[in-house]
Amino acid sequence: MDVVLFLIFAFIAVVAAINVVVQTHPIASAVSLIGVMGSLAILYLLLGAEFIAVAQVIVYAGAVMVLFIFVIMLLNAGAEVKRGRSLLVQLLGAPLLIALLGLLAYFVQRIFPRNVTVHFGGFTGGSAQAIGRALFTTYLLPFEVISLLILIAILGAIVLGRKELD
């Protein structure tokens, strides 16, 4: 059951991720990316990270990607114009990527023997309560400091987006 669930959503995630990379139109890539994020959210549930799964949907799929789609719509970005790419990229791109993937998979398989397995309900420490407790004790400092980051993001977007400088 868990294996089937994993295989289905891993497959969706990989296909959608490939789609992000090969589609020429930004909006098609964006929709595929939402697909990746959605299937990752399901996999998070499998890993017992219910809060993160929901946060993934709210933050990534519901806010970040909406911004992307919004900008694509606003700029009316069309399909990518194909240029003559350098011969090197054309010849080496795909083989290099496949080699890199193979290497990564090899590393991961070698480092992690199959003795640790995942099944639904195997870890239940990812509830909102557990996250909140850790956030306000052990991770109090990063939590407070990261609020500064959000302030910077707001300020930065305003600085760059305002009509006039003075």
Binding site: V3, F6, V14, A17, L104, F107, V118
Partner: peptide
């Protein structure tokens, strides 16, 4: 087999990263 080896998840993560 009903359980997923943890390395599958990590491989998936590596594949997505590479993509």
């Amino acid at each position: 087999m009903t359980q997923v080896p943890i390395s599958w998840f990590l491989t998936l993560s590596a594949v997505l990263f590479a993509l």
